[in-house]
Amino acid sequence: MNGFLAFLSKECLFCVRSQRVLITVLVFALLGVMNAPLAYYTPAILELAGAGDLADTMGIAQPTALEAWVQYFGNVGQMGILAALLLCGSLLSGEKSKGTLVLPLTKGLGRSGVIVAKFIAMSALWSLGLLVSAATSAACTLGLFPGEDVPHLLLGLVMLWLLGMFLLSLILPSSVVFRGSFAGLIIPGAVIVVLGILGVFPQLFFWSPLSLGGDSVLVMSGAKEAAVLLAPSLVAAISIVACVVVSVMLFRKSVV
């Protein structure tokens, strides 16, 4: 346990000193702060551009808080997750390729501790980013759209967090199986492509964790029932646990 805690605190120190925490805060604050003003000023911008009819056609002539959060889910669900993948993609594979794990492992550090500590570090970075972006978005939305309530907002945020966790957890087996500094991004990239293709088949996409982002927005806008999120969130949760367990099993038998 001491070894695990030492390694976990090393991970935290690394995230701070490698500027990962700072970058996470800045990137996600930016992603959070831009949605409400964009939603608020888009009709005016279109009006100035002489495309006021377009705003009417799109139904955004009278912007609402929901539109700000729709923007938020679009930005954080794509750019935010991409940023998190890039920030976390080399956490384990980078150590493997540099050989920095050799000495801690020969000192008696448990291999399962390495995987779990990496998972916690990735989860912490993603959670921090989501929290920062949600907080800044909420503050801006409250300022520009005071008093407006968005139904199922918290549920949507939890689903977005789960989607990010699902994709980040894929970094672990990818880092264990493949070699190279950014080997951790191979499986997440492949899964995004495959699940994206599955989007063509609605019956299959119903189970896909990738549907969590889009469906959350539809639930918040009332276009879909919240129950629609159950199947993909279950798949995502089971996949996260499976990724950690499989990674531990593979890492115990892999050459460092």
Partner: peptide, 29 residues
């Protein structure tokens, strides 16, 4: 029971020697 020095030891560049030894000591119990 073993101390190991590889041919090219790789350390965490963001740590100091004292921090690294503390880290190793904690892992060693």
């Amino acid at each position: 029971l073993v101390g190991f020095l590889p041919d090219v030891p790789e350390f965490y560049g963001f740590m100091s020697a004292l921090e690294y030894l503390t880290f190793c000591g904690k892992i060693a119990g």
